[in-house]
Simulated assay, not measured.
Amino acid sequence: MKESLFPAKVLLFGEYGILENSSGLSIPHDFYKGTLKFHSEFNKDILCSNHEIKKYYNFLSILEKKQILTQLDLKKLEKDIQRGLSFHSNIPQGYGIGSSGALVAAIYDKYAKNKFNKCLKNKNIIILKKIFSQMESFFHGKSSGIDPLICYLNLPLLIRSETDISTIGLPKKKKGEGAIFLLNSGIPSKTSSMIKFFFRKLKHDKFKKILKEEFIKYNEKCIEAFLKEDFKILLTNVKQLSTWVLHHFRPMIPKNFWKIWEEGIFNNIHYLKLCGSGGGGFILGFTPNYDLSRKKLEKYTMEVLFRF
């Protein structure tokens, strides 16, 4: 039997905002994917993966004794771990594109006793998101559940709020000069420490106010412009977003990218933003001229997601 493949995801818009019940737009990214596999021969990577799944099994066992939101066949999972189960994946860990989300989706798909199919009504999407939020909390301490949801459904999702999530069609890709791209920082990120940093800042009323009045406003305008294919307005608002992140989330940006980030904004070459939690991993870039951005960033690995 062929095992299911679970893609990575890219949260185009909504990082941290969705934790405060604002909008987000997330897409699957099929270049990276993962699947559960059995191995008769073991190397270091397989053994490490098997060990991590065992730790995750222990977490799920504790969760089951408390109040797990979905019934999993944990006896089968335990036996499969003993048989050499591992997660075979090319999704880089700590890069903000859902490595843990893909694993959670794969575990749910294989071991959930009454799993939802992948053609869901909005009501069931919300239920599944809550299930995934609980299951993924092992990896990050707190999870919105969006990453495994995207990885499981393999469809773009528009998040309006915690209770309003729907699948959505994306603009058609064009062969224009502009692009949305991934920029590899070469530094894995520790998601949990970035989330803790965010929630520490959120304790301050002043920060909470400007997050809502500025960051979330720019974010929602970006989503609206992208879906309307108004890329001029999109770039205007991404510039605002990029500037805001540089000012308020600077510790989430790798230090060797501070100057690149600033120069992109100042010279209107490209506008960078966090991909996932920040702190390293991939960085998202938006540019009116990809060829120019590629020259400016030639020492880094870049990957186009969307042309316009």
Score class of each variant (00 low, 15 high):
Leu5Met: 11
Phe6Cys: 09
Leu25Asn: 03
Ser26Thr: 15
Pro28Ser: 06
Asp30His: 15
Phe31Ser: 13
Phe31Met: 10
Tyr32Cys: 05
Tyr32Leu: 11
Phe38Asn: 00
Phe38Cys: 00
Lys44Met: 11
Lys44Cys: 10
Ser49Cys: 01
His51Lys: 14
His51Arg: 12
Lys54Gly: 02
Lys55Ile: 04
Phe59Tyr: 15
Leu69Gln: 14
Thr70Ala: 14
Lys75Glu: 14
Lys75Gln: 13
Lys76Asp: 11
Lys79Met: 04
Lys79Asn: 15
Ile81Trp: 00
Ile81Glu: 00
Gly84His: 02
Ser86Cys: 11
Ser86Pro: 01
Ile91Pro: 01
Gln93Met: 09
Gln93Pro: 01
Gly94Trp: 01
Ser100Asn: 04
Ser100Gln: 07
Leu103Trp: 00
Val104Phe: 08
Tyr108Asp: 10
Tyr111Phe: 15
Phe116Ile: 08
Lys121Val: 06
Asn122Ser: 14
Lys123Cys: 08
Ile127Pro: 00
Phe132Val: 07
Ser133Ile: 08
Gln134Asn: 05
Glu136Asn: 04
Ser143Met: 07
Gly145Met: 02
Ile146Asp: 02
Ile150Phe: 05
Ile150Met: 07
Arg160Glu: 13
Arg160Ser: 10
Glu162Trp: 13
Thr163Asp: 15
Thr163Gln: 15
Ile165Gly: 02
Thr167Glu: 15
Ile168Asp: 04
Ile168Leu: 11
Gly169Thr: 14
Leu170His: 08
Leu170Gly: 05
Lys172Met: 13
Lys173Gln: 12
Lys174Gln: 12
Ile180Arg: 00
Phe181Pro: 06
Phe181Asn: 03
Asn184Val: 06
Asn184His: 12
Ile187Val: 15
Pro188Asp: 14
Lys190Phe: 07
Met194Phe: 05
Ile195Cys: 01
Phe197Pro: 03
Phe198Asp: 04
Lys201Tyr: 10
His204Trp: 11
Ile210Trp: 02
Leu211Glu: 04
Lys212Thr: 15
Glu214Tyr: 07
Ile216Val: 14
Lys217Phe: 12
Lys221Phe: 10
Cys222Ser: 07
Ile223Trp: 01
Glu224Gln: 14
Glu224Gly: 02
Asp230Tyr: 06
Ile233Asp: 08
Leu234Ile: 10
Leu235Gln: 07
Lys239Ala: 11
Gln240Ile: 01
Thr243Asp: 08
Arg250Ser: 13
Arg250Phe: 08
Asn256Val: 08
Ile265Gly: 04
Ile269Asp: 12
Lys273Leu: 09
Gly276Arg: 00
Phe282Trp: 12
Leu284Ile: 12
Gly285Val: 05
Phe286Tyr: 15
Phe286Leu: 04
Asn289Arg: 09
Lys295Cys: 09
Lys296Glu: 13
Leu297Phe: 09
Leu297Gly: 00
Glu298Val: 09
Lys299Thr: 12
Tyr300Lys: 08
Thr301Gln: 13
